[in-house]
Amino acid sequence: MRHGKYRFLAGALIVPLTLYGAFVLSPYLQAFQLAFTNWNGVDSAPEFTGFDNFSKLWDDPLFLAGLRNNGLMLLVVPLAVIVLALALAAGTRGTRVYRVVYFFPQLLSVAIIAVLWQFVYTPNSGLLNGALSALGLDSWRQSWLAEPNLALWCVMAVMIWSSVGFYVVLFSAAMESVPGDIMEAAAIDGAGPMTVFRRITIPLIWESVQVGWIYLGIAALDGFALVQIMTVGPGGPDNSTEVMGLGLYRTAFTFGKFGYASAMGVAIFFLTLSIAVLLLRVTKRERVELA
């Protein structure tokens, strides 16, 4: 190999590593430090307050509301998306045109999706109430985002709407790599389509499904953009759509409590990490090898 290797390496790596260090690594590390202070962004020296911020989190009704709502999203959204996507992926075998259509929302910015659905849910001129009236279901009309019992479900519906298509494509690509003769053999042995799906297709594509659980689980702990743009307040009505990310954003950039907001960030980090590890454990299965 030619000499000058280290000069080349240094020249190639200095810029990316500086960028990464300044904008990614150092903020992450600083967040852990700030979380133990009461810094408000003005005083030059932040005061060390130990675990005060973290114990405050447990008495903060807004943060607890966010925790509860993210928890509900975590229970509902990944399961709904995976079930729907598996069903649609199995159904679209051989008909690609559906997948092309289903995938499209994946390409839209979550901000654009939020604005679009805000219009859909608008009480008087929105698509949803209009559709209900057209179907003769006038009594079902609602001010969707203004009802504390409904608003969070409306947000979750949008999350599901926007993510199903991606997993349809992911799962159907995996399904296509399942050899047809295995399915045929099972069918000859008398297995019905449901049994083949449950006992053969699902185990063989499990790796993709596992990826889905983890991505969707992490996404369910976010929800910031949808809630911040779509809901009244945002986070309302009555904190019914509050999410942890919104609480952090507000605490930092509206109230200037940067130390406390960093503690929220640390809490969100540990929650995300635990959920990812937990989902990895729970969804772990013996890998099926095709000989």
């Binding site: 903020p27 992450y28 600083q30 967040a31």
Partner: peptide, 13 residues
Amino acid sequence: FPVFLALVPLFFV
């Protein structure tokens, strides 16, 4: 790491 963790320090950087 979730971006939320970095958000506050990143703003000041």
